[in-house]
Design a protein around this nucleic acid. Structure first.
Lengths: 191, 191
DNA sequence: CATTTTATTGAATTTATATTCAACAGATTT
DNA sequence: AAATCTGTTGAATATAAATTCAATAAAATG
């Protein structure tokens, strides 16, 4: 099925191009013609692959939601290792797999303001913050994390990760921070 | 000059309403008619006060840039006090002076993606990240902050503050985190 | 090689929303 | 209180970008 495969390839190309542009300039600032031009293809043709600009966005956000929930399942790892290991990997993706990296940024943007309501709903449905809060609670139990509202700590943690990744997406030359800096938000302060 | 004052009042009301809506839903997702309705006034009348939607945004961003640069001048305070004190005050504004609070969120949004290019330029012109990096460098000199690229630490710090404030803007019921959690990004880990 | 199916384009159309405008109302001034 | 200036509205218009479409080229199929 060379034909169907071809079509899938093209769809993916569009999705990846759109993902990059959405992350860089934002959903509304990106024209459908910008995406088409960057793929490249004619503006009209893009509509043979996607119903609408919003459908294109939603497909991306749904992919992101799927990828995110698989990450959420690895709640078995000891909390103190989970965060720095996870961050190290995530920052490595910035160089090698921009796809994963950009997806994280997009999901974060979708959770906050500036995108169609529908995208926001999907992004929020993953419940990342709450899942992470649960892991933090465990770490508080074993005394490796500082006390305090676990959900609020989770919000702080993700805010940092999200913000740093947005900066990295905007300035590809930027180096990644030491995961330990970010993990310090959670860690109990002792020797 | 009751008349001119009246006009100024109205302008301020529009600015504050727009600020709130921009921060909550994002610039592009906010219709000019949404702003007018919330003030309240007719859609057409809003154009007697502002040239265009973009002018309205730019005026806000310019105000923000002004307020921000005044904050930047207080670089005399010892670094280790600067950050937690600053954060405590900032989070307090969330309750008492939503204006200041929302302004910070808007400036952060403008620095990143999703707004007209012009707004981005103005927001970036404040150089907040670099000014903060300088303060961090001082703190590294006296040994209270962890070593490492000061600018990168500054980016991490602001990413957290920005992200947390965006969450607070979206969910007004949310309580503020302990400033110490965020300052931990910078602090040298010792007893 | 004729026929059908799929890919592609660029121009025409639609749509959503920003922006303008003609008319009216209320306030201020002389 | 007449004249003028300012505030106000809602409907009309303009605009930018999304979306459709008729026409054509290329590929697959029989």
């Amino acid at each position: 099925m060379t034909r169907k495969e071809q079509k899938e390839e093209r769809r993916k190309a569009i999705l990846m191009t759109a993902l990059t542009l959405f992350v860089r300039r934002g959903y509304h600032e990106t024209k459908i013609s910008d995406i088409a031009e960057a793929v490249p293809m004619s503006t009209g043709l893009l509509f043979h692959y996607f119903e609408s600009k919003e459908e294109l966005l939603l497909e991306l956000v749904k992919m992101g939601a799927g990828a995110t929930s698989s990450v959420e399942k690895m709640g078995e790892i000891p909390p103190e290792l989970f965060f720095s290991g996870f961050l190290k990997q995530l920052f490595a993706y910035a160089k090698n797999e921009p796809w994963v990296f950009h997806m994280f940024v997009l999901m974060g943007q979708a959770r906050r303001a500036g995108m169609p309501e529908e995208a926001r709903k999907i992004a929020l449905s993953t419940g990342t913050i709450d899942v992470t809060a649960e892991i933090i609670r465990k770490g508080q139990g074993t005394g490796v994390f500082r006390p305090g509202d676990a959900r609020l700590l989770s919000v702080c943690f993700w805010a940092t990760v999200q913000g740093v990744m947005e900066e990295m997406a905007l300035d590809p030359g930027m180096e990644a921070p030491d995961p330990e800096w970010i993990a310090a938000i959670l860690r109990k302060e002792n020797g």
